[in-house]
Computed example of a mutant assay.
Amino acid sequence: MEKRVDFHTHIIPEQIPDFNEKYGADRWPTLEKTCSCGANIMVEGNVFREVTDQVWDPEKRIKDMDKEGVDIQVLSPIPVTFSYWADAEAAEEMSKIQNDFIAETVKKYPKRFIGLGTVPLQDVETSIREMDRCIHELGLKGIEIGTNINGENLDDPKFTEFFAKCEEWGVPLFIHPWETLGRERFPRHNFMYTVGMPSETALAAASLVNGGVIEKFPNLKVCFAHGGGSFPYIIPRLDQGWKVWPHLRKTEHPPSHYTKNFYFDSLNYDPLNLQYLIDRFGDDKIVMGSDYPFLLREIDPGKVVDETKQLTEEQRKAILGRNALQFLNVDLEDMD
Rank of each mutant, 00 (worst) to 15 (best):
E50S: 14
I72V: 12
L325W: 00
L121E: 06
R49V: 12
Y269C: 06
E167A: 00
A88M: 09
L272F: 15
I149M: 02
G241Q: 03
Y193G: 04
K165D: 07
K165G: 00
Y193W: 13
L311G: 03
D265I: 10
E59M: 10
N46F: 12
G241E: 04
I135K: 08
E167F: 03
D66Y: 09
R129N: 13
W85M: 00
E184I: 12
P218H: 11
S36N: 14
T201W: 12
P120Y: 05
A90N: 06
I16P: 01
K250I: 13
A39K: 02
N20D: 09
F174K: 00
D155G: 08
W178C: 05
P29T: 08
E68W: 13
M197R: 05
L277H: 06
I235Q: 04
N20F: 05
T201F: 11
M42Q: 07
W28V: 01
F162Y: 13
E298A: 03
A39Y: 02
I235G: 00
A205W: 09
L277R: 02
I135E: 12
E307R: 08
F48Y: 14
F281Y: 14
R188C: 12
L325V: 08
D306A: 14
Y292P: 00
R316D: 09
G170L: 05
I12K: 03
A25G: 12
D64G: 09
D87E: 14
Q275F: 06
F82G: 06
L332V: 13
L248N: 15
H253L: 14
V305E: 03
L320Q: 00
A90K: 05
R249K: 14
L173M: 11
M192G: 11
F113P: 02
E307D: 15
F224T: 05
A91G: 04
F294C: 00
H189Q: 09
I235E: 02
R133I: 13
R4I: 15
R185S: 09
H189Y: 15
C37W: 08
L208G: 01
D155P: 06
P187G: 05
P110V: 11
F281G: 07
P255K: 01
F162D: 01
L31V: 15
D239I: 07
L238F: 10
I286A: 05
I214Y: 12
N148R: 05
R133L: 12
D284S: 15
L220W: 03
P254G: 08
V304C: 10
T105Q: 03
V106E: 09
G196M: 04
P254E: 07
M1G: 13
K63A: 15
F224K: 02
D265E: 12
L181F: 11
I12D: 01
L320C: 05
K250A: 12
V330T: 04
F163V: 00
V106Q: 10
L267E: 03
F113M: 11
R61A: 10
A39N: 02
G282Y: 07
P77Y: 01
W85S: 02
M42P: 05
L181A: 09
D100T: 14
S36L: 12
S127H: 12
K303E: 14
S76D: 02
T194G: 10
G302D: 10
D71N: 14
P29Q: 01
E144P: 03
A25T: 06
L296K: 05
H247T: 13
P17V: 13
G38V: 11
D155E: 08
L238S: 00
V74G: 03
K33M: 15
E125M: 11
N20G: 01
